[in-house]
């Protein structure tokens, strides 16, 4: 009797271990995407002091442009390369023609402008691509799943985790090892000081918005083979981006990376024990952060 009990216990232990490991992997994949979008949003918020409500639609635009480019050129990789760059152009346009005129206006105007842009771009997506969604398949070399021994896992997701990690490292190096990165970080710390040092803040703001748009567009393009494309995908991701920023601490880039991954992992964990709460768990994390550490995990203000 005792042996049988031990055998069942051992089986359950192994089963749960595999399940937990697989959910960690899933959480990492999700979290990397959240981190990419979240870092873009936090950069814009930190430097420009504007909550970019159009960030979600830039993510959607990245996905739709990737879909179109991949279909036109038959090259998935070229689509992944070009679509975020086109989103940067849209970002530049938003900043230079709209946001820039509102830096001295009340916050409400900035919010209204960006929210209106989000709705307009979403409607433009519907006009151009239609209300019904699409699928973008990964190239044959990244299609299918690999058997990891304890788990069958899609190749594309594994590559996505590695690539997103690589991009985050690149971003980290850019921000810490280059002059422009140093200026951006200085802008987050103290905008007025950057101005006093004779740096053209308009250019800094433009580049920051562009970099944020690039990260949103890239995350959108990368997520397309997993999540598919729908006109509302931008508004779906937006609340998660803001949760990442709040949990991380306003303007904290390492915080956004860690918060993104933490949120992905917590969603994975919720699926094991309480699947109905996979969406709620994100907001629980935000609520707990606001109660116990209002400045966020890595924030100082």
């Amino acid at each position: 009797m005792k042996t049988a009990f031990n055998a069942v216990f051992e089986f359950l232990k192994i089963f749960m271990t595999f399940l937990i490991i697989s959910q960690i992997l899933n959480g990492l994949g999700l979290g990397m995407l959240y981190a990419l979008v979240g870092v873009g949003l936090t950069l814009i918020l930190g430097v420009l002091n504007i909550p970019n409500f159009a960030h979600g639609v830039l993510y959607a635009l990245g996905a739709y442009l990737a879909f179109t480019i991949a279909n036109l050129t038959d090259s998935f990789y070229f689509a992944m390369f070009l679509s975020p760059l086109l989103v940067v152009l849209v970002g530049f346009l938003l900043e230079s023609q709209g946001v820039r005129r509102l830096y001295h206006a009340h916050h409400d105007y900035q919010l209204l402008f960006l929210f209106a842009c989000a709705l307009i771009i979403q409607e433009v997506i519907i006009i151009i691509w239609g209300p019904i969604g699409f699928s973008l398949l990964p190239p044959p070399s990244l299609s299918g799943a690999v058997d990891l021994g304890f788990l069958i896992y899609p190749k594309y997701r594994l590559v996505l985790i590695c690539f997103a990690f690589f991009m985050i490292i690149c971003l980290y190096l850019f921000l810490t090892k280059t002059n422009l990165g140093a200026i951006l970080r200085a802008g987050i710390e103290n905008r007025d000081m950057v101005k006093v040092l004779g740096i053209n803040v308009n250019v800094v703001f433009l580049y920051t918005f562009g970099l944020g748009a690039y990260l949103a567009g890239l995350a959108g393009a990368l997520s397309a083979p997993i999540m598919g494309l729908t006109p509302s995908m931008g508004l779906d991701i937006l609340p998660i981006c803001f949760v990442v920023v709040v949990v991380a601490g306003l303007g904290s880039i390492p915080g956004a990376i860690i918060a993104g991954i933490l949120i992905g992992l917590s969603q994975g964990a919720a699926t094991i024990w309480f699947p109905e709460a996979t969406n709620v768990v994100i907001y629980v994390m935000m609520g707990l952060t606001i109660i116990f550490r209002p400045q966020g995990l890595f924030g100082v203000r």
Binding site: S22, N26, P275
Partner: peptide, 15 residues
């Protein structure tokens, strides 16, 4: 059971 409007099923699929 998953919430309405859920878009990420990897965690459910592995389970």
């Amino acid at each position: 059971r998953h919430p309405l409007g859920h878009r990420e099923y990897s965690t459910f699929i592995t389970k």
